[in-house]
């Protein structure tokens, strides 16, 4: 599959294959599909991609992707501006947003601390977060990071940084961890189940209201 009848074709295949999760076989299928479409549709596809990289912006407040200076979430006055939910990336922001359970604002870190991947605190949007927290308007920050060592380490780092701000009334919380909804207890691993026991919640708070 390495020699194609056309160089242009091959180049297009290479571009598609450079996308995450796309192998060469799928890339060939996509390019052939492009060729079958009417040229107007392919042009629109290409132009959208160019516009995407040229025109997309990152919200100056929360670093979410946006069409304008402030993203639609930060610009929405109905949302609770006293609470900030800290997420690793835009994907996680969308995941939390899709729960329909959260009405506050976000802060996208742009990654988590992982020296093995060459990512340190300076590569993340931490300074802008600390800047925001210096004002009194924010009363709670929720850590919604992955339950991995790197995620925990990032939370730990933020906790230390936030403690230095000397704002004792600022509430720092973390999303709860434990047994998934619909899971049998016997199949939960010890670490998760142990954590669930330690972080048990008052039953009344779990009732659907």
């Amino acid at each position: 599959m390495n020699s194609f009848p056309s160089k242009i074709f091959e180049q297009a295949v290479n571009e598609f294959a450079s996308l995450p999760g796309i192998g060469r076989r799928s890339a060939v299928r996509m390019v052939l599909h492009m060729l079958k479409q009417n040229p107007e549709e392919a042009r629109r596809f290409g132009e959208t991609m160019i516009r995407l990289t040229r025109e997309i912006r990152f919200c100056k407040n929360c670093h979410n992707i946006s069409d304008s200076e402030l993203c639609s979430i930060c610009a929405d006055h109905r949302r609770d501006a006293t609470t900030i939910c800290i997420v690793e990336d835009v994907r996680d922001l969308l995941a939390v947003e899709n729960t329909n359970q959260y009405r506050g604002l976000y802060h996208v870190l742009g990654g988590i601390i992982s020296p093995m991947d060459g990512i340190g605190p300076n590569n993340l949007n931490i300074e802008t977060l600390l800047e925001k927290l210096k004002t009194d308007t924010i009363t709670e920050i929720i850590m919604a990071l992955s339950a991995t060592m790197e995620g925990d380490t990032t939370v730990f780092y933020l906790y230390k940084k936030v403690s230095q701000l000397n704002r004792p009334e600022l509430k720092l919380t973390s999303i709860s961890r434990g047994v998934s909804i619909g899971d049998d207890l016997e199949y939960a691993d010890e670490v998760t189940l142990g954590r669930s026991i330690l972080n048990r919640t008052p039953y009344e708070s779990t009732l659907v209201r």
């Binding site: 601390i113 020296p115 340190g120 605190p121 300076n122 380490t153 730990f156 780092y157 230390k160 940084k161």
Partner: peptide
């Protein structure tokens, strides 16, 4: 960067 190292040491 002492602060970065500290979170691992802790």
């Amino acid at each position: 960067d002492g602060a970065s190292l500290e979170i691992w040491d802790d």
